[in-house]
Nucleic acid binder design. Structure first.
Lengths: 342, 342
DNA sequence: AATAAAAGTGTAACCGGTTCCATTATGTTT
DNA sequence: AAACATAATGGAACCGGTTACACTTTTATT
C-alpha cells in the first residue's frame, strides 16, 4: 500500500513548477516547451502518477459524470438501455453513475440527493412520477435532466426521449384487428405512467379506426413490479366474453403474462393471438415465435446521452427537446385469425 | 440557473463558523449545541444547501464509490448482477460507477485508468485476463479488487467470487449421463477463461465417473461475444457421430445455440437433450421448458460488495478471499433418454 | 541592433469541504 | 468560591488540483 504521488511530487521530481505539470496534464491550457513536456511526462510515468478527479472537479472542472437512474436493471429493456448509455457515454469520455429506484419515490429522492451532491452534469432517468420539486431544483442548478421511456406531464420543461408509444400500440392493435379479431385486450403499465396512458390511447385509436367497440374490461393495468401481469391475465381469461387477442404493452410483465397463459394451457395463437412489447432473443425461440414491438434501444440511448450533455456549462435554456423514435412491429407467428366461436 | 451555496454561505447565514457547519454535516465529528444544530440545519434547508462530494473526498473522505467493470450489461446474467450489486451498494450508502469492457483489453485498461483517477475504494470486475500490471498497481494503491464470475490465475492475490464451476458442470453432465447418454457435448467459454476451463474440467470429471470416453470433438469453446455459439453448434451437428446431449455452459451464447438448433430443426429433447447455464424466466416458457443451471446471483453480488468494501481505509493485507457459491441444477423437461440409434 | 511580440515558466490564490488546535462558555466537584 | 473538567465555537491550514498574473527568456520585426 503506497501513498499516491501528487502533482507537487511530479513537479519536484521534474524540476518544474506545478503550473507546468498542470499544463502538461491539460493540453491547450497553456504553452509548454516540447523538452519540458516530455520530461514531465516521463516523470509521471515512472512515478505512476494519476491526477485525482476529485481535485480536478473542485475547480470548475468539465463535467465528466452522468447519472443514470433507472427503475431497475434486471428488466432486460433497462439493462440494454444501460449498456448502450454506458457505451455512448464512454465514447465521449464520460462516466456513468448507475442507480435504481425500484419504482419507489423515497428511494428516488435519496438517489437524487446523491446526484446533487456529486454535481453530475446530466441525469438520464425513468422517473417514478413524484419528487417534482427535486427535479425542478436539479434543472435550476443547471443539471441537464432527460427522461427516457416515460415522462412527467407536470414537468413540461424536461427533455424527453421515448418511442412513439401511441403509434406503436396503435399499429399492434391494428394488426390484430386486421386479422379479424373483435375482442382485443391490452395489458399495459399503470395509468399513472405516461407510457401506460399513451399505449392505451393508441390501442383505443386502433379500435375506433377498425370500428370496434371499446370495452374497459379488456384494458388492464399492471404495476411494473411483482406478479401483477399474471393476475391481470387471469382476470382477462375469466371474463364472460374473453378476448381472442392480446397486446402486452408492459415490458416488465411480459414473462409473467406468458407464464400464466402457459399454466392455464391457453394455446397461442389458436386460442389467443399475442403481441408483446419486448425484444429479447428469446421471443424468437418461443413456440410459436412471438410477434413483437421492438424498441430501438440504441437510438433511445444515443439521444438521451446527447441531450444529457447538451449544455456542458450549465447553460440550460430554451424549450425542452422531445424525441420520439419509431418502434418496429416485427411479425412472427403468434398472431392468427380468431377461431370461430361456438 | 442559480449558483449553489457553499458551506461558507451557510455559516454566514447562520452566524457561525464553517467548522460548526461541518460538524452539523458530520454528526459525531465534534460537539454542537442542540440550538445551534437546529439553526444551522434550518439555514441549510432554506438555502437548499448540498455539500459537494468532490470537496469532501479531497480530504481523506470515506470511500463512497465503487467501480463495477463488467464485460457488458446486455447479457442478462451481468445485468442482474449489476442490479444486485447496485442495490447492495446503495444499502450501504455506496455509489456505483458502471463500466463495460466489451471483453477488450484496451478498453479495460482505459476504464481502469479512470477508476484509478477517481480513487474508488473498490472494484468489482469480470477481468478480460490481461492488464496484469494495472491490476497489481490497483491493489498496491490500496484499492479492494474483487473478480467476479471469473479470475486470473496469474493474479492469485485478488479476491474472487464465483459459482463452483467445476461442480456445476459436473453435476449437469452427470445428469445427462444418468439418463443414458454416451455422447455428451459441451459448449463452453473460451479456454483462456477460468470459467471455461473449470466447466470443462467438471464435464470431464463427470464423464470419467460415468466411465464414458472423452472425445475432444465434443468440447467446443465459443467466444463470449458474437455468434460463436451458433457456429459451435453447427459443428457439433455435422459431426460423424453427433452428440445426443449437450451442456451449454457459456451463458453469453445460450440463445445463439438454441437459435441454431431451432433453425436446424433439431427437436429437444427427442434428438438432443439440453442443459443450459442460464436463469432467464424465458427458459421456463420454452417448449419444452429447459433444464438449467441457476447461478445465485444475489449471493455473488452480496459477497462481491462485501469484499470490495472490506478494507475501507485501504488496509488491505493477508491472503485473498475466495468465495465459491453453489449453483442449482433445476430439472425441467429438456433432458430425456437418448433415442436408440438406427 | 533595438524593440516588440510571443513563448515558457513560476508564484500564489482559489475551489469547498475537513480537521487540528486554541479559545471561550458552561457545568461539576469539594 | 476556587479549581478544574467538559462543551461549544472559531481560526486557519490542508487536501490536490487549476488558473490568473507576473516575470523571464526566445523569436520576430523593421
Amino acid at each position: 500500500m503506497q501513498k499516491q504521488p501528487t502533482i507537487r511530487d511530479v513537479a519536484a521530481a521534474a524540476g518544474v513548477s506545478v503550473a507546468v505539470v498542470s499544463r502538461v496534464l491539460n493540453p491547450g491550457s497553456g504553452p509548454v516547451a516540447a523538452a519540458t513536456r516530455s520530461r514531465v511526462s516521463e516523470v509521471m510515468e515512472t512515478l505512476g502518477y494519476h491526477p485525482r478527479t476529485a481535485a480536478r472537479e473542485l475547480k470548475h472542472g468539465p463535467p465528466t459524470t452522468l447519472g443514470l437512474l433507472l427503475a431497475d436493471v434486471s428488466n432486460p429493456f433497462f439493462a440494454r438501455l444501460a449498456d448502450q448509455v454506458v457505451q455512448e457515454a464512454h465514447s465521449r469520455g464520460i462516466q456513468v453513475l448507475l442507480m435504481t429506484t425500484q419504482e419507489d419515490d423515497q428511494l428516488e429522492s435519496e438517489r437524487l440527493s446523491t446526484l446533487i451532491e456529486r454535481r453530475v452534469s446530466g441525469i438520464i432517468a425513468t422517473p417514478t412520477g413524484n419528487n417534482l420539486e427535486i427535479w425542478k431544483k436539479l434543472q435550476d442548478m443547471g443539471t441537464d435532466v432527460v427522461f427516457v421511456d416515460r415522462s412527467i406531464p407536470a414537468l413540461p420543461a424536461v427533455d424527453v426521449v421515448t418511442i412513439n408509444n401511441v403509434e406503436s400500440a396503435r399499429s399492434a392493435t391494428a394488426l390484430l384487428a386486421a386479422h379479424g379479431h373483435r375482442r382485443i385486450a391490452i395489458i399495459s403499465g399503470p395509468s399513472s405512467s405516461t407510457t401506460g396512458r399513451d399505449r392505451i390511447a393508441g390501442y383505443r385509436e386502433a379500435l375506433d379506426a377498425a370500428g370496434l367497440d371499446q370495452d374497459d374490461l379488456l384494458i388492464r393495468s399492471a404495476a411494473f413490479r411483482g406478479a401483477a401481469g399474471g393476475d391481470a391475465m387471469t382476470t382477462l381469461l375469466n371474463l364472460e366474453d374473453p378476448p381472442t387477442a392480446l397486446v402486452v404493452a408492459n415490458t416488465a410483465q411480459v414473462t409473467a403474462v406468458l407464464r400464466r397463459l402457459s399454466h392455464a394451457g391457453v394455446s397461442i395463437p389458436d386460442e389467443l393471438s399475442v403481441i408483446v412489447f419486448e425484444d429479447s432473443p428469446w421471443t424468437e425461440l418461443m413456440t410459436p415465435p412471438l410477434t413483437i414491438v421492438r424498441q430501438p434501444i440504441d437510438l433511445l440511448a444515443r439521444h438521451s446521452v446527447r441531450l444529457a450533455l447538451a449544455h456542458p456549462n450549465g447553460k440550460a435554456a430554451g424549450k425542452p427537446t422531445v424525441v420520439r423514435v419509431d418502434a418496429e412491429l416485427v411479425e412472427r407467428s403468434s398472431v392468427a385469425r380468431p377461431r370461430l366461436r361456438v
